[in-house]
Design a binder for these strands. Structure first.
Lengths: 338, 338
DNA sequence: CTGAAAGCGCTTACAG
DNA sequence: CTGAAAGCGCTTACAG
């Protein structure tokens, strides 16, 4: 199991009897045509024979380019994160980039550590779903001048590249739909987070009530814990449904909230959508066998992932201005709404 | 957005008026106590002031160690792969390793390309879920002497580190359980794959029939396509259930097979488990709201991921012999079996 | 206690 | 058409 001695350009050069420069030119197809064909062929043959691999570390040190993208998500094990990771991987691979990843666990300190590590590793750029309270770190990152693109979340106060959902409109349209279908008391259950995208979901919800003739009730907005959300979600749903005038519609602010919420509702003597309509952010395969397939707000994941990567790769070449994209969601209507 | 000029050891050395060697020693806490305290402090202060980051590329080139692990999975977007990725990330992080990943899509050629890239990037080791027909590549990898650990799958003909499930026993126990609970005609629906772990699942199934007094019927073993499995799975289940003597139990060879299978069964006028018992490999949250929660074979994912990483990190230090681990699954009995 | 120097494995302007 | 040489940013034996 001892490591086989690595062969370098020098080994090839010595064997063929030329300089390392020439070997480098040949193997990188530089100065094509301007190099003696026989020598070139001999170099190629020898490289193959010796099982040569170029040491990308050395190349990067010299060229100041690593062809590496750092990806920071909340948790690579979550479907949203791993789905995006896959899309980014595919886009990056087309241009020979490799992806290194890390999970922040929504923790600004852990996030900072990941950024540091990735910068030390000289990544060419970063794709980031920033956690709460990481404005300063994003701002600081910007000072360094390394290209990066935020996705899913962003900070309105910072002028940086981002690709996100138009959460306000998505939420607005979903709630408006429920109201149009006859719901009188729509609620929203979402994370207790100061992240802008979560605020926007609530803002869209509130605007939909206001602009569609419904008097908002503060109690209809429920914010649940991020760590250990299950109990918190069940309590929120329970409260909403046991008020004197129970709510008759619920917008769940994420798919994982919806999963716990719907499972809990499924234990109650209530019928969806007759007693309560339900809409969820994001698709939730976990609920596929629920008797009333859930109406949901679909994010254009593939487009978002592709665009995010494209913007990053673009701004690694040129110095373009900030690209800020709010994509439109699509409301997929199924059986959980009237 | 222009890249801020990077500061190197040399910049610090010049500013403080010492050699780069000394700066390196101080920042790496080498030769502690043997360096003038004031000078050391000045170096540290200056490093901070200049916002110095060590260029890990340069260090790795010199030390021949990158603190990078390459992870090759079938598809990072799948729950099994991303779940393992997360566990590996956490274990690796404890020892300051970073993970780069790639998805093989069960394609040996793509797999080979990933291995090449990762070797060129001088990873310290690889964690691999090898695809079908990659024996030669694994064998070749072994010749290079780079530490690696296979997980989930392995090739019995190759003596390499691996962490896998004892699929034979897992399958055997599941089928035995169904037979003990009164099933007379158990079937298995699994991927049409020559990968050993899939073979083992069938072997366990067959052994359970034989050793528990059931005459096997060839038609009870259904192999479905890997790409585009849905139609293939539905056809298989349909055939099993419409035979003259329909099967009364089905073992699904993976969670994604189970998802399609159960969804299809859910459209039929059949009751689970009265008409047909069901067991699935791996947990399938997607079926959580099925009226009869699925009995499943639980892999000890966390233990597997941790052990895989541990073995890799160990064999990067020492030259130990091949570690080959077949872990035991646990049968989680719920409502889909009699 | 500290420094000069070699070297990791490449790339690339420059010279001929 | 080809090579000598510098240099990317580190680490580390060696010398003093």
């Amino acid at each position: 199991m001892a490591l086989v001695k690595k062969v370098s350009l020098k080994d090839i050069a010595q064997k063929v009897g030329v300089s390392t420069a020439l070997v480098s030119y040949v193997l990188n197809n530089k100065k094509e045509g301007r190099i003696n064909k026989d020598v070139a062929q001999k170099i190629r043959d020898t490289a193959k024979e010796l099982n040569y691999r170029t040491n990308l570390l050395a190349r990067s040190l010299k060229t100041n380019k690593t062809y590496t993208i750092g990806l920071i998500v909340a948790d690579i094990a979550s479907p949203f994160s791993s789905g995006m990771a896959r899309i980014i991987e595919d886009e990056a691979e087309k241009l020979n980039y490799t992806v290194i990843f890390g999970s922040s666990d929504e923790n600004a300190q852990k996030f900072g550590k990941l950024v540091d590590t990735f910068l030390n590793r000289q990544v060419d750029g970063l794709i980031i779903a920033p956690p709460e309270n990481s404005e300063n770190q994003i701002f600081h990152l910007q000072q360094q001048g390394l290209p990066f693109v935020l996705f899913d979340r962003y900070f309105p106060a910072i002028t940086a590249n981002y690709v996100a959902l138009d959460n306000y409109t998505a939420s607005y349209n979903a709630v408006k739909y429920m109201i149009e279908r006859g719901c009188k008391r729509p609620a929203i259950v979402t994370y207790n987070s100061n992240l802008f995208h979560m605020q926007e979901r609530i803002r869209g919800y509130s605007a939909a009530l206001k602009l569609n003739g419904i008097n908002a009730n503060k109690c209809w907005i429920k914010k649940v814990n991020i760590p250990n959300p299950k109990a918190s979600i069940e309590k929120a749903v329970q409260e909403l449904l046991s008020m004197d005038e129970p709510v008759d519609a619920i917008l769940f602010g994420s798919n994982s909230i919806a999963i716990h919420g719907v499972k809990y509702i499924n234990t109650l003597p209530l019928k969806v959508p007759d007693d309560v309509s339900i809409i969820s952010f994001d698709e939730t395969e976990s609920l596929d066998l629920f008797y009333a397939p859930i109406t949901y707000i679909k994010q254009p994941m593939r487009e978002m992932g592709q665009l995010t990567t494209k913007i990053l790769l673009d701004c690694m070449c040129k110095n373009n201005k900030a690209c800020q994209v709010n994509m439109q969601a699509e409301l997929i209507i199924r059986a959980s709404t009237k």
